[in-house]
């Protein structure tokens, strides 16, 4: 009896969190478009989530592309198909690695910071203070972050794709001697618009997912030091796993 009750309780709890977080997302999203619009807040968040992630995305993309270049070269050479190296690198990056790795890096850098920031605002009464100044904390703090995530992630992913392909080119063409024309030319003919569209759509969804989960976990964190530190860890774990699961779902839907 007791076991059944506790299973029931924890299930209800989980559904409650799911419901609350969904409402949270919708409120935050639609509040962003209601006046007063806070354009400067939004620009600041794009700077924080997007432009400050450039370096980390650049390095990740470069090395991912370079590794793909080497690995692809040695696998493809066994079939004498080095010429399609460009296609292989570009397809794996544009369709899969770009959006996913980019999202994971942004989670680690910006997602955890968002949770910590909101959690600390909660501990130090800054959220109630906003409320007392007749300013909706969700609209003021959360909405700009969610919109910034939606804008930043696709842009970062596009940048990732570009750098990744360049990384593959660097290793494949310059180092291992794949024909330059084949690398670029075959890539251009083989990649369709659907590939790019799929990748960008994924990054779009990841953008919402990252800011949504990290803001919600921060917002509902227990207002203690331990509460915020465990919330930060939770954000990274939950968001990263959700990204991988959502990636599978989106991939299977898109194909």
């Amino acid at each position: 009896m007791q076991i059944a009750a506790s299973i029931g309780r924890s299930t209800l709890n989980r559904f409650q969190i799911l419901g609350r977080s969904t409402i949270f997302l919708f409120v935050a999203f639609f509040q962003a478009f209601l006046p007063p619009l806070r354009f400067s807040r939004f620009v600041k968040e794009v700077e924080f989530i997007g432009s400050k992630s450039f370096l980390i995305v650049f390095i990740t993309a470069l090395f991912t592309g370079m590794v793909l270049g080497i690995q692809g070269y040695y696998s493809l050479r066994q079939f004498g198909a080095e010429a399609v190296l460009g296609v292989m690198v570009a397809l794996s990056i544009i369709r899969e690695l770009g959006p996913v790795l980019c999202a994971l890096m942004v989670t680690g850098r910006a997602g955890s910071a968002i949770t910590a920031q909101i959690g600390i605002m909660k501990i130090t009464d800054q959220l109630p203070a906003l409320e007392m100044m007749a300013i909706d904390p969700i609209k003021y703090v959360i909405s700009p972050k969610i919109i910034a995530g939606i804008i930043s992630l696709p842009l970062l992913t596009a940048f990732f794709d570009l750098v990744g392909i360049a990384g593959g080119y660097l290793v494949g063409v310059k180092l291992l001697g794949v024909n330059e024309g084949a690398y670029i030319g075959k890539m251009v003919t083989a990649i369709t618009f659907e590939d790019i569209y799929g990748g960008i759509l994924k990054s779009f969804c990841f953008g919402i997912l990252i800011t949504w989960i990290s803001a919600f976990i921060g917002f509902t964190a227990e207002p203690t030091t331990e509460g915020v530190s465990s919330a930060t860890t939770n954000t990274v774990v939950v968001t990263s796993l959700s990204i991988l699961v959502l990636d599978y779902i989106l991939t299977s839907l898109l194909l």
């Binding site: 600390i120 130090t124 009464d125 800054q126 109630p128 203070a129 409320e131 007392m132 007749a134």
Partner: peptide, 15 residues
């Protein structure tokens, strides 16, 4: 609330 002011225990200044 616009007619209310509140001083929080930890001051709650925006850091």
């Amino acid at each position: 609330r616009k007619k209310m002011g509140m001083l929080f225990q930890g001051s709650a200044l925006f850091n």
